[in-house]
Design a protein around this nucleic acid. Structure first.
Lengths: 164, 164
DNA sequence: ACCGTGACTTGCGAAATGCAAGCGACCAAC
DNA sequence: GTTGGTCGCTTGCATTTCGCAAGTCACGGT
């Protein structure tokens, strides 16, 4: 109960987690990015319980991440495809993938992401100056949308990676 | 039970989810990146139940994401700091943050990440050619670590965003 | 008439989570 | 010198979520 309450709390990391944090959701998204789109395809690929799959797809639809689209009238059959909002989650998946490949893929990556004709990993750069971003040259501060509590809590504070 | 079994399944997205997928874990990481390091600090910031917090910190320690470090002998007191492996998760958090700011922050971002002296968002580029990566110019294929099942399942298949 | 497919729903037991309380070793104040 | 507070937890019990197996409904094929 408590985490749903927390997700309300004006935090741009907590908000997407309100649905991404539910089990299976990210794996369903992975399947969507791989081109899967039908209920039974997800079920066969993941082995997820059908009631849970059903609920997750409903939530993703409600959140506007996927569109539930009828592809057959008689009988009624549906497929699920990513919306623009859903495709915008790709960086999250690519970041997870890059980390997983680095730390958990002893035999090399099970899946390669391909840009043009070359396999790659996603690297993050600064939207303003274009320099590479890493944990040592980034810190944070309250933004324009911060409430007074956040201004207090996240005001000047040395990030841990600067404090040794 | 089933999702733990799935996480064993040679997938670089599923593997990190085995611990990141547990509730609160990503928010604890966010706090760690904000410089928080003590048990009660996390508890006060998140309102998470203390038994859950205790288990999450144990898991993160076991996974090598944080280091549990004694900062006082009498009485024994501990703090938690990110390891290199943990700091490497920053792209995941930045990607979540960028999405959250775009789609959920009506009043502007509650928190700004700062590079040098400018607030920014993380943008992903291709590690090979340096071009921007977006959902329309990426597809996937089995990699060197793929097993035969994965070669079959993820072989030539048009990603959904190419198939209209 | 029967089997198979696709997209689900239902019922029920198991596991994860939440809440409140307590604990042990201090320290600082009255 | 006892009360009160801090810190980092653990324990017990209620609630919520999840997993599993089965069933359903509308077809379509043979």
């Amino acid at each position: 109960m408590a985490i749903e309450a927390y997700a309300e709390k004006n935090c741009s990391i907590a908000k997407p987690l309100s649905f991404l944090g539910e089990r299976w959701t990210v794996l369903i998204l992975r399947d969507l990015f791989l081109g899967r789109r039908r209920f039974d395809e997800f079920q066969a690929s993941l082995g997820v319980a059908t009631n849970v799959l059903s609920r997750r797809l409903t939530t993703l639809t409600e959140e506007g991440i996927v569109e539930r689209r009828r592809y057959s009238e008689h009988p009624e059959r549906f497929e699920y495809v990513l919306t623009e909002k859903g495709r915008d989650l790709q960086p999250v998946l690519l970041a997870l993938l890059a980390w997983g490949d680095k730390y958990t893929a002893e035999k090399g990556p099970p899946l390669e992401v391909v840009h043009g004709d070359h396999a790659f990993h996603a690297v993050q750069i600064c939207s303003v100056c274009g320099e590479p971003v890493d944990s040592h040259n980034v810190h944070s501060r309250p933004g324009p949308g911060a409430n007074s509590e956040q201004r207090r809590a996240n005001g000047r504070r040395a990030p841990e990676w600067l404090a040794r």
